[in-house]
Design a protein around this nucleic acid. Structure first.
Lengths: 237, 237
DNA sequence: ATCGCTCTATGACTTGCATCATAGTGTCAA
DNA sequence: TTGACACTATGATGCAAGTCATAGAGCGAT
């Protein structure tokens, strides 16, 4: 689908080693030093250009992924082809893992697409499971991550019922936690996370701008005053 | 809110002991005999009439629950008050647990309401955690449950994008797995699971009836032919 | 028996948001 | 510099599904 000539991310010499990076990633924090060395040795690193698909829903799954650099969106597609972005993930976040831990689910349930140039760490399932089985503390870490994400998604699935304006406000608040007051996403991406179209997203954000709540530029939204946004969320209608 | 005079479920003398029942419940299956005895001794059983709220979103949470008898629906409410039933749970299923395992989330994120008269087993958090910390196999069980539920809900949240007809077909297929071909839910309950109104649910199911796919009676829907329902789900539009 | 309530059913009206169309602007590549 | 393309922007139109209204039918409570 994508041109073969898209330039890959040029890895700048990273300041910290992969091992050190992994030691900061949530379910690996508890691993003893020797295990971390081994994990760093057994994992590999890959680079992707913006817009590349790392895996697609239904692909046979054999790996767990961690973002080292860049941003990735996890999609589900409706049968009519409209994309819904379930999550927008930043460095140190895992993906392609959690929903496969339980069942004998050997395919990816979603599609992972890079939203920017990315560098990701790939760990084969068999490697991951080896560490998983050997380190009870890590099992708890994964369980805890799973649980957190369950909570997020529950919130998301409930937001279905809300009118678009609230859904977008909700996503903006969530992105605010992730990125701070300047959110580096295009209107399209925000729309995909809100489950709506670009046009509606633009109209809505433009109405927020008119009210002085945000400012908007190409590829970014800056939150100027989050209290009215917060208020909008809790308002009865 | 509810009358104080609603008659409680009259517990018929159950054929199996609570201990034996617990031994069949997923994350406890792996517990050694002595631990099961202890768990049965430390847990307690409660009965609820139809329509009672076991806990509400935001309530301080101190327990893990298991359905012994009856059916329970887990709700989120939109700010306009419209209910969305995230799940419809049957005996042996846990609730009030999974989304609290990770964070220090001391309040329930959803509301649990009995859809029929129910008997439930209550396990205090501190008891549950004691077993959780002592039995690594149980941690994996919980992790796996969490992961399964994450998958279910991901499917649900994506279905937002689908037209109502598909959402209802989807829910019917899911309930089919749970209950067999006769689904003992009212149109209202099916609507709540599909994220739509009673009227729309009735209209849609009535259209399925006219096509000969289902038959419908007060408080139940019987699937006659699931292949066209299945086909509806995958159809491009 | 009868009151009250929930469930089912169907028609008429309304509306939020998608869709379609058009266009200006910023950015990158050759 | 010029084309190609993504992003932003705004107006016009249509439709799916919600809302409101009404009514019959089943079921439990007294």
């Amino acid at each position: 689908m994508l041109s073969l000539f898209i330039p890959r991310l040029q890895m700048t010499p990273t300041s910290i080693s992969r091992r050190q990076f992994l030691s900061q990633v949530s379910p690996f924090e508890t691993l003893p030093a020797a295990e971390l060395d081994r994990l760093a040795a057994l994992s590999r690193e890959k680079s992707y250009a913006k817009g590349e698909t790392i895996y697609a829903e239904g692909d046979p799954a054999d790996s767990v992924w961690i973002i080292r650099e860049g941003r990735i969106q996890i999609f589900k597609y409706s049968t009519s082809g409209r994309p819904l972005a379930i999550e927008s993930l930043s460095p140190k976040e895992l993906f392609g893992t959690l929903c496969r831990m339980g069942s004998n689910n050997r395919t990816y349930p979603c599609t992972a697409v890079t939203a920017t140039a990315c560098s990701v760490i790939q760990i084969l399932d068999r490697t991951f499971l080896e560490f998983y089985n050997r380190n009870p503390a890590m099992v708890m870490g994964v369980c805890s991550l799973c649980s957190q994400r369950l909570n997020n998604i529950q919130g998301l699935s409930c937001s279905t019922q809300e009118p678009v304006e609230k859904r977008i406000a909700m996503i903006l608040m969530q992105l605010h936690k992730q990125h701070g007051s300047t959110i580096p996403l295009t209107k399209r991406e925000i729309g995909e996370l809100s489950g709506t179209t670009v046009e509606t997203t633009i109209r809505t954000i433009s109405s927020f701008t008119k009210k002085g709540w945000v400012t908007s530029a190409r590829g970014q939204v800056t939150l100027k005053d989050i209290t009215p946004l917060q208020k909008l969320l809790t308002e009865p209608c």
